[in-house]
Design a protein around this nucleic acid. Structure first.
Lengths: 224, 224
DNA sequence: GGAGAAAGTCAAAATTTGGTCAAGAATAAA
DNA sequence: TTTATTCTTGACCAAATTTTGACTTTCTCC
């Protein structure tokens, strides 16, 4: 899905140029040539906003504060001024970065990408990032080994989730059973060894590592 | 030291019954027949709270939230209701477990013990640091001599845990056996000398020190 | 020093535990 | 419905641990 960028600047020549360039790089672009227009176009829910500081009427700093009341996304100021005081004002207003005119289009793209990446990371659901290469995304319930996605059944993922969220701690089968099946579940906690076997097999095939360690007589632990 | 349990229920017959039963099992019990009384009795610093959900005035869920602002300990709800929604509400309010009326006293004791055990484990200081170089990590159940990890079986570790947590104190074999195997375990406490031998051998090989000292005719002590 | 009790040693037996497998039961998908 | 997937169970094996008992050593006290 393409990222949406909102460009706010009162110089049509510049906005046209930027718009074309960003579209060439795969972005979906909205353009606003005034503050009012910008506010009206917030409903496009941009992933990132490029904002000119010098505009007639409500200027970029003011606009930035207003925008912040509505949505959370990276806001990059486009500006000619670049005093220390300007930076402070911009950050106070809720901006994320400055790009001084004139700027290279390459640089602009690079900055935009950097901010989108960071934003994505911040808003990303909590992940357990274990040893390099392995990503366990708890809210999507997905596991990646490098680029490859490993598929686990519900119970399997539940066990992985519980153990990997408490790395290095040993949990006996009763405790795991209680955590995954529910404290009031009835049944034999020996099912766990079967699930553990399946989990290990999948990890082993993909990554060559088992991740779950047996502590004899005690239970299992997630080896980080 | 006996665990302290606070029972909060507006039915005197029930609280009386529970109180007696828990006392028989060695617990120190406080009883509150109302929410107000319960709050007043928090200063007994209970290790665990049994809380009736259905009470006049502030109900158990509300009370639970309030209690959570004061102390951290397992809170078990006593309840007749048991819908899925109730569980969610209870957990949201900060409860740890549900026990539905009517319940067996056996089960109650078992649940209480399970929670106390877990609580103790979670609140345990992460590691015992004995003489330089030796690290005994109780929650991970790992022992390090400098960088090297020493491996111990369950019983071995349990013995090390018990002794090293009470350094310099002498315990006779009966006492150690009771602490590690359980007060109601049957068997010959002479097994201990064999385990001690194994433990000593492992420590000796790695560190050149035995750590466990024999006090002739008395028992063993952890030499710090 | 010697008797007797307590602790240490050792190897083998007994038990417990975890891993594996196959098949049946339950659940979800088509 | 059929089909496929997942979950659970029980049996079996292998490995690791725990216990046992016979034996030796060490210590204490007379």
């Amino acid at each position: 899905m393409a990222y949406r960028v909102l460009i706010v600047d009162d110089e049509p020549i510049l906005t046209e140029l930027l718009s074309t360039h960003l579209q060439d790089h795969g972005y979906t672009v909205s353009v606003a040539n005034s503050s009012d227009e910008a506010l009206a176009k917030l409903n496009t829910k941009p992933n990132l906003i490029l904002l000119d500081i010098n505009m007639p009427g409500m200027d970029g700093l003011e606009l930035c504060k207003v925008i912040r009341n509505h949505i959370v996304c990276p806001i990059l100021f486009l500006t000619a001024r670049i005093t220390e005081q300007d930076k402070v004002n911009g950050l106070r207003a809720g901006g994320d970065d400055y790009i001084t005119k004139p700027f290279g289009l390459q640089e602009l793209i690079a900055r935009i990408e950097a901010h989108l990446r960071r934003d994505e990371r911040n808003n990303r659901p909590p992940e357990v990032l274990t040893s390099q290469g392995l990503i366990i995304n708890l809210s999507d319930r997905k596991v990646f080994w490098n680029e490859q996605e490993l598929s686990f059944s519900k119970r399997e993922f539940d066990i992985i989730e519980f153990l990997s969220s408490n790395p290095n701690q040993v949990f006996d089968k009763e405790r795991i059973y209680e955590a995954v099946w529910g404290y009031d579940a009835e049944g034999d906690s020996s099912v766990i060894k079967e699930h553990i076997r399946k989990i290990r097999a999948k990890f082993m095939q993909a990554s060559g590592s088992e991740y779950i360690e047996t502590v004899w007589g005690m239970g299992y632990r997630w080896k980080k």
